[in-house]
Design a protein around this nucleic acid. Structure first.
Lengths: 223, 223
DNA sequence: CAAAGATTCAATTAACCTCTTGAATAAAGT
DNA sequence: ACTTTATTCAAGAGGTTAATTGAATCTTTG
């Protein structure tokens, strides 16, 4: 069959992309890049990799077409080539979640309260935002907030929470979000707020999923 | 941060699933299993792997939670654990298609007529099926047809096409489908039918995507 | 043009994956 | 119980990938 050779070549390309995803460090890098573009140095610092090692992983991701880099002065800034990649990571997550028992085990061990915090869906949040019924809190670090966030969101990383409690409305529902489903920042914020008597919920997923879904975002300092 | 350890463990699990997808042979196996469950021997035959090798790849897929096997007499029958896996493969395909230039090259080389054949969407086909405006042709091998197919579809692999032309309506549109976007069977059928004056189109994607979308399917020999 | 900073390249070693081969199970038929 | 058939296990050669180190490249700044 003449279909065998080109099919084989295509599958080989798919497999190469899958192999690029087949390393925890590279998934970590991709997750960070799903938040915002970054330089090699920043990425190395955030992931705990040496610079040379981060650079090599990034190049591997680039060879597979998942990220692209541009030079900007002394630095090279990397970003995802495509928001479809967020969908791919989400799909990978769902399959791993459903199928791999070990993931459940870790989740149950660490995110014990996971189910108690009843996350709010994107659709639901959007509706409540339109009705002005909700205060949206971004629990990520400042620089990620600056690079893009949900419209009207307040930047409030866990460390600043205690001294900025009075900025928050006591009579209105609060929804917090962060990087994505395995980011703990919004869990921390919600737990803390609830402990202090606020009505707080988590957004399901995080900023990259929101953006990838084509929902509106806002930039505080348009670079 | 206490979030680093469990996060690392989770990413490692995701990476393990991605690594399981990182081999053309395993993707080939998964594509076959997306059609229907099969024994090790069948899978080895269809992919051209030795039996021992196919067995090892299948076990790797099983360890990652992507397939499961059950003993049935002398044979072990493998199948996908979950239709979400079809979505993951689709997502992988879309990313690879958009990003990897080499894939485009192969596609243009082999599926030259790809664009000329204007595929019909699932939604569109469903509408035309309801209105009774269309004859649906399944271009896959007989056994895959028997394991499940679109409602009312006629099994018509390319080899049987010439001697069964008179079964087809000359005055009605024909839509052919096969295994998925990189399966050539439906291309062959459509090209042949058009050459003989029929009005024929391809369905976008194939049977596994149809089934995974929750659309109705039919079994000819309920096993 | 020299110096410093950011990133990449090159070379090394260790770890891992792939395919093959032949032996070991497991179930069914004789 | 023995043979056959289908699958899995175990071991080894060959190749690929990962992390580390130090040198090389490219860009801005003095």
């Amino acid at each position: 069959m003449s279909s065998q050779n080109p099919k084989r070549a295509i599958l080989e390309q798919f497999a190469a992309v899958a192999r690029a995803l087949g390393s925890a460090h590279r998934l970590d890098l991709l997750e960070l890049l799903a938040q915002t573009e970054r330089s090699v140095e920043e990425l190395a610092g955030l992931t705990g990799l040496t610079i040379a090692n981060a650079s090599q992983h990034l190049q591997q991701l680039r060879r597979s077409g998942l990220v692209e880099g541009r030079r900007e002065g002394k630095r090279v800034i990397y970003r995802l080539t495509d928001s479809e990649i967020v969908a791919l990571l989400g799909s990978l997550r769902r399959v791993a979640e459903r199928n791999v028992a070990a993931v459940e085990k870790v989740l149950n061990g660490y995110f014990r309260q996971r189910d108690k915090l009843e996350p709010v869906s994107r659709k639901e949040l959007l509706r409540r935002m339109r009705d002005g019924l909700v205060t949206v809190v971004d629990a990520r670090p400042l620089d990620e907030f600056a690079a893009g966030h949900l419209p009207g969101a307040i930047s409030l990383p866990p460390r600043q929470l205690k001294r900025r409690l009075r900025e928050l409305p006591a009579d209105q529902e609060i929804v917090a979000y962060c990087r994505g489903p395995y980011c703990v920042l919004s869990y921390e914020v919600v737990a803390e707020l609830r402990a202090r008597g606020f009505t707080a919920f988590r957004l399901e997923d995080g900023y990259p999923e929101w953006k990838a879904a084509g929902l509106p975002v806002e930039n505080s300092s348009p670079a």
